[in-house]
Design a protein around this nucleic acid. Structure first.
Lengths: 324, 324
DNA sequence: CTGAAAGCGCTTACAG
DNA sequence: CTGAAAGCGCTTACAG
């Protein structure tokens, strides 16, 4: 059958345990022996058997990625992008990725529990934050290592998480618009829930207040309309598309009549004109940082929960301009 | 540590091998013994150790899902949707899912090779079709079980694949428009490559020809414009958004002046008006069928490559109307 | 229908 | 620096 450690050992004229040590590049082994063994591995085309290694070592070297329970939400480009980034970073550390998806938190919890109890994974990266749910409760209760992408609304102090600074994101949007000479600025949202809205809006309010420009939030619903605004901060790209359309039906053009800055830099922002001025939230780094954190947690190099802030970048495109 | 098969055996007063047989619900074991053993498993909270099972059985019970090499492409909703569907179907069969992502076919091939040679996966589902590449060559050359989602352009006869009937999809689009009394219909594309374009366009041509309405394809580029068309068939949702915009800038409104039918029923089609009339290609079923096929292949219940056709459904929304 | 035993391919104290 | 041995937790012929 396949080439095993024993075959390599025989060919190299050493013991199997030595081969094992060479595989993990143990500093105990002399360079000479290492070279000899590596040559034998080469010659034979040796590949480790993952299952055997996991069983013997007790480490799965696999992390589970938990998607949000709503399938619709999961089809946003964000998730595929971060999954790619997680997978690539994991590979650098020779770690595999398993996934948990489902239509409800109950299903998700079942999967998470199964994967962990069958020792398929060493820990999890959870791709949704906000309020606590069954999944998180399970992880916390059973002291399973995990990191959250986003900011938890509860027990924030006990959860290692990775996120952008959404408050700052709120403030910076205002700053950009004010630099373009805008004064009458509103924040547009289609939800009042979730930590993303809460924090971006808070940042928006803080900054407008600081500048003496205080305004409220506009809810994007049937009755949405603007009054004297010359600029808007919109919660995300997809919503921004709808806002542009609505404004247009009210005879307002972006950016000629009204400027608009939004978030996420997803593909939605650059399909049709005006291409959207948007904050890139650096999904690649979010994913990479999440992987590093979960590995730290697993190896207990760091036990205290901490928050990692990922920088963002303003992408100026067509939806904002200087107020005349 | 964790509860093992031995603990269960002791508690149930049987041999470990009997417990193992109960786990896989072997017909050799009496119902009485099964009940006894199951009770013991319950009491002890037994969970199998996945790695041990894989090592001993030689089956990983995991399938690898290979994403296309371009990250941009991978962020289309299609991929996350099918991944979800694959994962859910796999779960029904007690199968895990591993993923392979990368920026180049070379990276992808490296991963695929690694996963297979380390015996992490039993086979693969490849999420992109078209021309052959390193990945597919590797799989074919090494006789690795795999199924393609989409239609291969080469060696089609040797590859098990799952796809919609794109030719029929082309014809049906014409049919829908003709039913609405349209006669001057063109096909709009932004690429001349790929089997999706080739087949949908072929179907379009066949049907228009049959009806004596023959027209060519319009390439969506800088110079795009229509002449006497009253209806268009557009290659996909995202392109359709751009087409609507371009038409609008030429003073043509959809569907008042020109009808438009497109494909994929992605989220892009229902963000802004006109919501697009589109064919739902049934991604869930594509994923589910792919899983079943790869399991069949693995278990060699069926060795001959075959094509599985997944049905589609026309979703009529706002972008098509009866020609006055 | 059930048990005893060997084995899957690694890792890791323990010795030297 | 290297080897011999036990063990990780299962599965699966082989016997009876």
């Amino acid at each position: 059958m396949a080439v095993t450690i024993k075959d390599v050992a025989k060919r190299a004229g050493v013991n199997a345990s030595t081969v094992s040590r060479v595989i993990k590049d143990s500093s105990e082994i002399s360079e000479k022996t290492k070279a000899k063994v590596r040559k034998a591995m080469q010659d034979l085309g040796y590949r480790r058997n993952a299952a055997a290694q996991i069983l013997a070592s007790g480490k799965s070297n696999t992390i589970g990625v938990v998607f949000p329970p709503v399938t619709d939400k999961a089809s946003q480009p964000f998730f595929m992008k971060i999954l790619t980034s997680i997978n690539e970073t994991a590979r650098e550390y020779d770690i595999s990725v398993a996934i948990a998806t489902g239509h409800s938190t109950w299903e998700l919890k079942k999967q998470v529990e199964l994967q962990y109890s069958e020792k398929r994974v060493d820990g999890f990266i959870v791709l949704y934050a906000g309020k606590s749910d069954e999944v998180r409760t399970y992880l916390l209760d059973h002291k399973v290592p995990f990191v959250l992408v986003g900011t938890p609304l509860e027990r924030q102090n006990e959860i290692t998480h990775v996120d952008n600074d959404n408050m700052l994101l709120g403030r910076e949007a205002v700053r950009h618009l004010v630099e373009l000479n805008h004064q009458n600025i509103s924040f547009v949202t289609n939800t009042l829930e979730g930590e993303v809205f809460a924090e971006r809006y808070q940042g928006f309010k803080d900054e407008t207040k600081r500048l003496g420009l205080s305004r409220g939030a506009l809810l994007m619903d049937r009755d949405f309309s603007v009054t004297d605004e010359t600029a808007l901060v919109v919660l995300d790209d997809v919503l921004a598309l709808k806002v542009v359309e609505r404004l247009s039906s009210q005879g307002l053009r972006v950016p000629e009549d009204i400027s608009l800055v939004t978030y996420n830099n997803s593909i939605f922002g650059s399909i049709i004109h005006p291409y959207l001025t948007t904050f890139d939230i650096n999904i690649e780094q979010l994913g990479a940082a999440a992987v590093r954190k979960i590995l730290d947690l697993r190896d207990a190099q760091q036990q205290l929960p901490e928050k990692t802030i990922i920088p963002f970048e303003l992408i100026v495109r067509e939806s904002t301009k200087v107020r005349a």
